[in-house]
């Protein structure tokens, strides 16, 4: 029995064999599980513990260390706005404020429709193309506040396109 889709389950089966020690699969496994389930639920902790062969406590000890891993559901599109120094100098906070305004949520908030969540994050490694954000794993760089509504609309459209009945 697994929580995961057959594809992810197969990927995780392979993952533990990839390293000299199974345990090395722990961090990627948690991240991939989160990508599919949306967050690290108690059930994810339990299955990951069992797949790696360690205790659930051990999984939690590790999982809670990494800031990309979350323990509550986020929006379908998790908007992560960098406000670290390079981005801040070029208007990172203005971008962040604009997202707050447009989405009507604050740090770690989720929109009522569950489509978006917002997070102020540390440097995401695109400092020379600041200010920048990441929506899930997609980067958007050299932003201006006025580009924000367009980005949001883009993802709204994507959500509609991906909806099962569409």
């Amino acid at each position: 029995m697994t929580l995961f889709s057959p594809r992810l389950a197969a990927r995780l089966d392979a993952l533990v064999e990839k390293y000299p020690l199974r345990r090395s699969a722990l961090v990627p496994m948690l991240l991939y599980a989160q990508d599919e389930i949306g967050y690290i639920s108690d059930a994810v902790v339990a299955e990951v513990a069992q797949r790696i062969g360690i205790t659930e406590l051990d999984v939690r000890n590790v999982a809670t260390y990494y800031s990309m891993l979350r323990f509550k559901p986020a929006g379908k599109y998790n908007v992560q706005v960098c406000t670290n120094i390079s981005c801040m100098l070029r208007g990172g906070y203005e971008i962040y404020e604009r997202f707050k305004e447009e989405l009507g949520i604050g740090h770690k908030g989720v929109t009522p429709d569950g489509l978006f969540s917002l997070e102020e994050v540390e440097c995401i490694g695109v400092c020379c193309w600041a200010p920048a954000i990441q929506v899930n794993y997609d980067f958007h760089d050299e932003l201006k506040p006025d580009l924000v509504p367009g980005i949001i609309d883009g993802y709204r459209g994507k959500a509609v396109a991906e909806a099962p009945h569409a």
Binding site: L21, L26, V27, P28, L31, V62, Y66, S67, M68
Partner: peptide
Amino acid sequence: QTGAGAYEVGEESALMESLEGK
């Protein structure tokens, strides 16, 4: 290997710990 959000893991010994699933 992928990390999951942690600057400190760039420090070489913490990097090894992270790679060992800790």
